[in-house]
Simulated assay, not measured.
Amino acid sequence: MYAFVVAIQPELNPRFLINMKAFVAVTLATLLAVVYGADVDVCHSSVLTACDGREGGEVACNSLHGGFKHAERDMQSYVNSQLATSYDYLLLSTHFNSYQKHRPGFEKLFKELSDKAWDNAVNLIKKITQRGGVTNLNEKHEIPSTISRGKQPSLEVDELHSLALALDSEKKLAGDAQRIHRRISRLDKEEHYDPEVSHFIEEKFLEEQASTIRKLSGYANDLAKLVSVPDPSLSVYLFDEYLQKQ
């Protein structure tokens, strides 16, 4: 009898286990359907339709979360602002690189500002994509650049006025970053709150722009004092040499 039980045990065990696994799987599926069936924003509840590109895919199976969607449009507008500002700085840089002006220090300053604004735009696009948004550079937002707002001033300006234009532009960019930060830091509206984007704006933009504003304001005030003489040509030349070494 003992031998008989040992002989048939190997045949019964696998079938029993298979049946048990099937029972557990069906039970779990039923429970999950009950739990998630009413929640259309959960990926699992619509996994068959949400993740294969059919209707509903943009609702559930994506990286959108937190309050990002409430700041997405402002962030895309901010991309446009950074790109337009980069272009304006590039024009200023080439203006001071001409044989008439020949100010290598000012050329270097505005080329660095142009590169910084371009890199900021790239980082913003990466962040928007990471958080599930889509950057559409063809979409029209508000007029982006301070230098280009309203009656566009000529970019063929003297050294002091170029610093003033750059300072105004950086202050506008800082204000735009503060508006995005304020929108996603509202603790009174949970759907707007997004600490990850808030930290990104603080670390990558607000701190850096505060430093740039301080530097440009110092340059503008120093140069304003240097040119307040009957013949400021030597003062401007020496100031340009100073900028080359920064």
Score class of each variant (00 low, 15 high):
K108P: 03
T135C: 15
N120I: 06
E159F: 09
E207R: 01
I147W: 04
D194R: 04
S114P: 08
F205G: 00
S114H: 09
G132K: 12
L109R: 05
F96E: 11
H141I: 13
A164E: 15
L91Q: 13
A164I: 07
P144Y: 08
L91D: 02
D158S: 07
E207Q: 06
H95P: 05
T129S: 06
K171V: 03
D115E: 13
L165V: 10
F106Y: 14
E156A: 10
S98I: 07
S114C: 11
P104E: 06
Y193N: 11
L124S: 03
D176A: 12
L113R: 13
H102Y: 14
D188W: 00
K101T: 07
Y193A: 12
G105E: 06
D119M: 09
H102E: 14
L160K: 14
I180R: 13
A117D: 07
R131F: 14
R131D: 15
I184L: 08
R179Y: 08
L206C: 08
H199G: 05
G175P: 01
K189H: 09
Y87F: 14
A164V: 08
L155C: 05
A166V: 09
R131L: 15
F110N: 06
K111F: 13
A117S: 09
L109V: 15
D168F: 03
L91M: 11
T146Y: 15
S148R: 15
G133F: 07
A166N: 05
S162R: 11
A164P: 00
R103A: 14
Y99P: 00
H161P: 00
D188A: 04
A174M: 06
S198L: 07
K111L: 15
E107I: 01
K189P: 04
Q152A: 12
E156I: 02
N123Y: 04
H102M: 11
L113H: 10
F106K: 01
D194E: 12
T129K: 02
L206P: 02
E202C: 02
L137T: 14
S93C: 08
G105C: 10
Y193F: 14
T129G: 01
L165I: 14
P195G: 06
